[in-house]
Design a protein around this nucleic acid. Structure first.
Lengths: 341, 341
DNA sequence: TATAGTAATCGAAACGTTTCGACATTATTT
DNA sequence: AAATAATGTCGAAACGTTTCGATTACTATA
């Protein structure tokens, strides 16, 4: 039904191998011959078939994207953006993305099928991901890169956000606004990003000579969603200690904090200012809009793809650690309502 | 490096073809032989290679997912959920999804590459999608199915939401609450779902004997996002006509309506009730929470995949129209604040 | 008992590419 | 003018599967 390289060769009156050379821009082909071949290709609407090509080159033209299923349902917008970033960048390099979500507890044999069947040329892993999979990739020498996660004891290629910088920006912003009693809420402390945000909060505040009390830090929540933010904030408020601003470990928790305050008729930011982290959609749909740290999510996905492509082409070796810059986005939850007009 | 079928054959002491028969559960293989082969497979950790298999079977083990790029950035949560639904269901059938976003105006030659390279066994198209692509699929006899979109003049396999039922549920709900002056805001009227929601609003209201005035229907917005909802609502409110409830064509527009009312200090739902459609995340994070029509997004994706699988296996022919049921989710934007505790 | 059918296994062809080495021709260097 | 290098083209092997007869050995049917 569909034209093959053979048909093209016949129509152009050349050998199959010559067509291949033209298609792949390899070797020395006379201008004239090339034209003949190109014309035949166009006329027959020929496109090389992936599987045939892959059989000999051992390249699939795909990247795998592995995502913790919990993440995708919970912190959806964050990882969706990253995924979108990979998709677009991958397309520009003529790759496709095979997405799969995995459950946290990988049973012995649920390595994603695309790995077993060697149907990907590289793998992107976003968020917390089982050690076992990374081991598998390592053993099979498949290029891979982690996004927003890492194993402290290993030296994998990784893309991280500048969590420390983000927290510093937030603190500077709040201090500048005159806040003195800062609190911190976090959760999911198994995640290195969360840990970093929390630890930076403490260390930087100390460095700034601001008072820092453990009572104002609540990081015991297991997850880091809206409910967790709500719960943590409620606990803080019930302590009846002086708090003028709450720094949340991410936007979802900040929204929870917003809600907890709202329930108690606490005015934001007049009585308590609140900040988030990530700059996902909800930070702008929330009322008041959320002051937060912008994380370049799409760019992180794109950078991951570029790295894989570079590794495959031997232009870069594995083991790099890319730290993406962040910036502060000041909105109503610290500045107050922007006067209309 | 990796074991091939040859290695398995040698280790098991049988012919290559016998191994193939075992792997594919075909033909008559003696129990004993089968066991030998299976043991060899396990020992060598053998998995058939996709591209080699695909070369001869002409099956890729992939489905394509084509999405209008605008949709994915604008109405992200809606289509993300659908995509997620396809992914999970596809995995259960041992398929993978290749996602690609396309720009609305398909230039002559930007047919997704996975189609040209015959790298998918079927295609799912979500949201408004160019006619040209559907033509291509038809011509190449690739099974495909549309989600939340259709061409009136064609009979493609399609998965739709019960838009008419949704609007009827909303209207019944509002009438029951005693509302009489219902308004409607919509946008993106090129989309059949939007059209249906609007037309049902008119016809059902009429059927119910309720007053229906064109002045209370605003569907001129080009898009259907938050800003459009804001703009449409503003226009309605400035007319200074009596409105007790606003039915929005989707959640995003409803959120815009919420905001427009909030800006004018209109209390919701005491002065004006507002309803959405789709039941995406924002309808629950919005304040007040949004009464809306729940659309089973994941299920729609899953159903699409099942249909493709059925078509491929000859169990079903193309051209079906599946209408997914919807249900009303009543929340604060019509009922008022739920008293705590 | 001869014949047809079925079970079990195998070898070889085929799928559509890329790539390697061979060969002829032409250009460049000595 | 001879030797070498570069250019242009090609045929054939290889990639790892599935599938299609062919072959043999049984088993059931006429």
């Amino acid at each position: 039904m569909n034209a093959t390289i053979k048909d093209v060769a016949k129509k152009a009156g050349v050998a199959i191998s010559t067509v291949s050379l033209v298609v792949n821009h390899k070797g020395h082909v006379a201008k004239e011959t090339e034209l003949k071949v190109l014309r035949a290709i166009k006329e027959l609407n020929y496109h090389p078939q992936r599987s045939a090509r892959g059989l000999v080159t051992k390249q699939s033209g795909n990247f795998g994207f592995i995502l913790n299923g919990n993440h995708f349902s919970q912190a959806e917008p964050f990882y969706t953006k990253i995924f979108l970033g990979t998709e677009i960048q991958a397309r520009s390099f003529d790759y496709y993305i095979l997405l799969t979500t995995i459950t946290q507890n990988v049973t012995p044999k649920n390595i994603p099928r695309f790995l077993l069947e060697r149907n990907v040329d590289g793998v992107i892993l976003a968020g917390s991901v089982p050690h076992k999979i990374v081991d598998y990739l390592h053993k099979n020498q498949l290029p891979f890169i982690l996004i927003d996660y890492y194993f402290p004891e290993r030296h994998d290629s990784t893309i991280l956000t500048d969590n420390a910088m983000g927290i510093r920006l937030v603190i500077d912003h709040l201090l500048e606004l005159g806040h003195r009693d800062l609190a911190f809420i976090g959760g999911d402390m198994g995640h290195p990003s969360m840990q970093k945000r929390c630890s930076t909060f403490k260390s930087y505040l100390q460095q700034k000579g601001a008072p820092i009390e453990d009572a104002k830090i609540d990081c015991i929540e297991e997850h880091s969603g809206t409910e967790s933010g709500f719960a943590a904030t409620t606990r803080l408020l019930e302590k009846n200690i002086s708090i003028s601003a709450i720094v949340a470990a991410n936007d979802a928790m900040a929204v929870g904090a917003l809600r907890a305050c709202r329930d108690r008729k606490i005015r934001i930011p007049e009585e308590i200012a609140i900040t988030g982290f990530d700059d996902v959609e909800s930070s702008i749909t929330a009322r008041p809009t959320l002051t937060t740290v912008h994380v370049p999510k799409e760019e992180m996905g794109a950078a991951a793809v570029r790295h894989l492509v570079d590794v495959i082409n031997g232009r870069q070796s594995e083991g790099v650690r890319i730290i993406m810059p962040v910036k502060l986005v000041a909105r109503e939850s610290t500045l107050g309502a922007i006067p209309p007009g």
